[in-house]
Design a protein around this nucleic acid. Structure first.
Length: 824
DNA sequence: GTGCCTGCTCACGGG
DNA sequence: GAGCAGGCAC
């Protein structure tokens, strides 16, 4: 029996496709990695293709590593010569060899987003750009977008002719590139762009790689941007043996330039392409799959496909709306513990997914309290911590003396009495004489006004030069280098003297960095400093995830792509969070579609059990926000969802129905749930029926009896009575889906009065406010959230607490002194 | 030149 | 709510 016998028919056809372009549309969980690895094995074993003639591109190092391991397992050793790597590391490898051909030094530095921001700040100062009006971030994202589309500064400038506002961007882009070049640095986008520059201007180099990469495979093709597409096109131009694998329904990186048309138009680009659809899912239960299909069916721009599975139906998807984000987190953690015991599973069988990194904090808190081991993916990157960045800046300065950003970062860290005035003078001198900042430091004695700082500067310079000199000895390790830096600068010593908890944790991070250096040298004997730094620059958060350690995994939905877990929790399922406020208020419908694909990705991560949750109120950026359950929850066919009432202790008085929001809670018993009339399919939603029941009773709304297309407002009361409260009833026949979802809980102010919102911490107000020029019922404008109606006002000492229902951003409660609302 | 305080800004995702 | 830049006092 061969390794190919276990493949299904479509998988086998894909694996055995040898020559010519191939598009594999692989639905979630359809075994695409299996196809890719088997195809590599097949090419090598059955077709005699040399491993070094195969290039497989993935999006993360983690995926690359796994792919190599799996190929190794298939064919037994020999996969190490297959070039498996990410777009970015592929480009770095090519550039390290040939970038001098396009005018950079081969020891170039890679700038991360912090470095980019620092550089842009300098540029704004230099070009007199008012950063209040034009943000660095905006400039950088415009530049990044231009690069993703392969638009050069010159082209950009042309396009901006006559548009004064845009000309600022063009100038900034131009200066930014100039400075990157002067610093011998490349940002992430440049890695791709410069590789294309190199290949298009040097046919011999291109030809070399075209010969080398006779078989090219690209994973997650739906996430490639125009530049990446172009790169692949160049490399594959001679042999046309290009195999791309992707799923248009899982395209979730538009914000960083992903061009979904790369996959949608593949057949136009390569008319001779063979197209294979993998539609059998091996991962999830039928119910989970149906839920995912139900959600994604609301998107219009997609390739037709229908996922199916031979797996059992499985459990229903569970949904619960909690009072606060804290209760939500507590309940999830509870549930993990119970389920784990009941099913004899381990912690790594559970993943908690959320839309934004900020949501992890509350969850972490609860997990720590319970002593549950967890792994947080993302958040504040290890390499973004101050102490780690400082030490890396030393390494960068030693490695690449032209990197001004790095040199300026450490010139006075730890403090050595070289202040801003001195730095400015050195900078001016450097610019005037076209030296790098570090070069200028070596000539400090010629710089007017440096005076007192001169001796300090020279000792800094000689420290760097001595360390740099040591690297000439091939037996000198990077480990010794970093230890000498720590020693010479007194960095750790200073932290030890501080003795605070924060200082201790910084010291731990530093020793962690030293560990990483050691590991790097073990894994890459003879690896250079540049290689170490590039390794560091190109790690993704997800790379550090080891699914085999017994920990609950916490991460964003974005990070979860490509992974699977027996039990998945999708929390914060609220309009305003997911889909996010930005998406809801956007004019562009495609953004909602992207958000929906993200939801699809989340759902399809689950193998056996999917639990969704929402909170009525949560703190977002210091303001209490009231959110309705996510429209995506409503898009799951109702018969697939089991809604459980928040079963925490009764707290708001038993038996009384609160709120007209249709989620009215009664006694916190384990109530039943009713969506209203979801049965009627596309025709309408019941607004009611989210009511949970009184203790053990069946106090829920009438089910929206089929054809009528609505449900009564099902406010559970302790008597289990279903009734209309405050005149809110379900939506009528034919009510548009979208509308009902949005208006479902129109009168949120009632909840607030009923529940009495969580007391906000009273902080002294900066500016005493005695009266307001607006009141309940007035329309006001918020600088960020736009227009809204004041639904409640509460007097505080010297301030007011204003509850505003925004037209687009939901209900928010804010301090009048802080929010600066303007009456309309 | 250093250190503290205040006020402002950012509130989506990441290689 | 948090992190950072800028202002101000020493």
């Amino acid at each position: 029996m061969s390794i190919y016998d276990k493949l299904n028919e479509e998988q086998r056809i894909a694996v055995e496709h040898k020559e010519g372009p191939l598009l594999i549309l692989a639905g979630a969980g359809s075994g695409k990695t299996r196809v890719l690895t088997h195809r590599i094995a097949y090419l090598m074993e059955e077709c005699g293709v040399k491993p070094w003639n195969i290039l497989a591109i993935t999006f993360t190092n983690k995926a690359a590593k796994e792919m190599r391991e799996r190929v190794d397992n298939l064919i037994g050793e020999g996969a190490e010569d297959v070039w498996v790597s990410t777009f970015h590391s592929t480009c770095v490898r090519i550039l390290r060899r040939y970038i001098d051909l396009i005018g950079y030094d081969r020891s170039f530095t890679i700038y991360d987003s912090d470095d980019q921001k620092t550089l842009m700040r300098e540029i704004c100062k230099y070009l007199d750009i008012d950063t209040k009006r034009t943000k660095e971030r905006a400039l950088l994202s415009a530049i990044s977008a231009a690069k993703d589309e392969l638009i050069s500064p010159m082209q950009y400038e042309k396009e901006c002719m006559g548009n004064y506002g845009k000309q600022v961007y063009a100038k900034a882009y131009n200066e930014y590139q100039k400075r990157l070049k002067a610093n011998n640095a490349l940002d992430f986008d440049d890695l791709i762009v410069k590789t294309i520059d190199l290949l298009t201007t040097h046919p011999d180099v291109l030809s070399y790689y075209q010969d080398r990469f006779q078989y090219i495979m690209v994973d997650e093709y739906q996430d490639t941007n125009t530049a990446q597409f172009k790169l692949i096109e160049l490399l594959a131009a001679r042999n046309h043996n290009l195999c791309v694998v992707g799923d248009d329904d899982q395209s979730i990186y538009k914000f960083r330039g992903a061009n979904i048309y790369n996959i949608l138009n593949f057949e136009k680009e390569y008319p001779e392409a063979k197209v294979i659809k993998l539609e059998q899912n091996y991962r999830s239960t039928q119910n989970i799959l149906d839920a995912a299909n139900g959600v994604i069916a609301n998107n219009t721009e997609r390739k037709d496909k229908k996922l199916w599975t031979a797996n059992e139906k499985g459990d229903l998807i569970r949904f619960t709306q909690y009072e606060t984000d804290y209760e939500e987190a507590a309940a999830i953690v509870d549930d993990i513990e119970t389920t784990m015991k009941e099913n004899g599973e381990s912690y790594n069988d559970f993943a908690i997914l959320y839309r934004t990194n900020a949501q992890s904090r509350v969850l972490e808190e609860k997990l720590v309290n319970r002593g549950i081991p967890y792994k947080l993916v993302g958040g504040v990157n290890f390499y973004a911590r101050r102490e780690v960045k400082d030490l890396l800046a030393y390494l960068k300065t030693i490695d690449n003396g032209m990197d001004d950003i790095a040199a300026k970062r450490i010139i006075n860290v730890p403090k050595r009495g070289i202040g801003l005035t001195t730095i400015d003078r050195v900078t001016d001198y450097a610019i005037a004489n076209e030296y790098s900042f570090f070069e200028a430091l070596t000539r400090a004695e010629y710089i007017a006004g440096v005076g007192r700082a001169l001796s300090r500067i020279s000792s800094f310079v000689s420290m760097i030069e001595i360390l740099r000199g040591k690297l000439d000895d091939p037996s000198y390790t990077l480990e010794s280098l970093i230890n000498e830096i720590i020693e010479a600068t007194g960095y750790v010593e200073e932290l030890q003297a501080e003795g605070t908890d924060e200082a201790k944790s910084r010291i731990e991070n530093i020793s962690e960095l030293v560990n990483k250096v050691v590991t790097f040298e073990q894994e890459h004997p003879g690896g250079s400093l540049s290689e170490f730094l590039e390794d560091v620059a190109l790690v993704a958060d997800i790379d550090s995830l080891d699914e085999n350690t017994e920990k609950v995994v916490l991460m964003t939905l974005h990070s979860a792509k490509g992974l699977e877990f027996p039990n998945v929790y999708m929390c914060g399922m609220e309009d305003g969070i997911f889909p996010g406020y930005m998406t809801i208020s956007s004019e562009d419908d495609s953004e909602m579609e992207e958000e929906r694909r993200l939801c699809y990705v989340g759902i399809t991560r689950a193998m056996h059990r999917l639990t969704m949750s929402a909170a009525r109120q949560r703190m977002v950026h210091g303001e209490t926000q009231f959110n309705k359950p996510s429209r995506f929850v409503h898009e799951i066919p109702r018969f697939l969802v089991e809604v459980t009432a928040d079963s925490l202790k009764p707290r708001y008085g038993g038996g009384t129905a609160y709120g007209s929001d249709g989620y009215g809670l009664a006694d916190r018993g384990r109530g039943r749930f009713d969506y209203g009339s979801y049965d009627s399919g596309s025709r309408g939603y019941g607004s009611g029926g989210y009511g949970s029941a009184g203790t053990g009773s069946t106090g829920y709304g009438n089910s929206g009896s089929g054809s009528r297309g609505y449900g009564n407002a099902g406010y559970g009361s302790s008597t289990g009575r279903s009734s209309n409260v405050n005149g809110m009833s379900g939506y009528g026949v034919g009510q548009a889906r979208k509308k009902s979802a949005i208006d479902l809980f129109a009168d949120n102010s009632m909840i607030q009065k009923g529940f009495g919102a969580k007391p906000t911490k009273v902080t002294p107000t900066k500016e005493k406010i005695d009266s307001l020029n607006y009141g309940e019922g007035d329309t006001v404008k918020h600088t960020r959230f736009g227009a809204g109606t004041v639904t409640a006002l509460k007097e505080l000492p010297g301030d007011y607490e204003v509850t505003v229902e925004f037209e687009k951003g939901g209900v928010k409660k804010m301090r009048a002194s802080f929010a600066k609302l303007e009456k309309l």
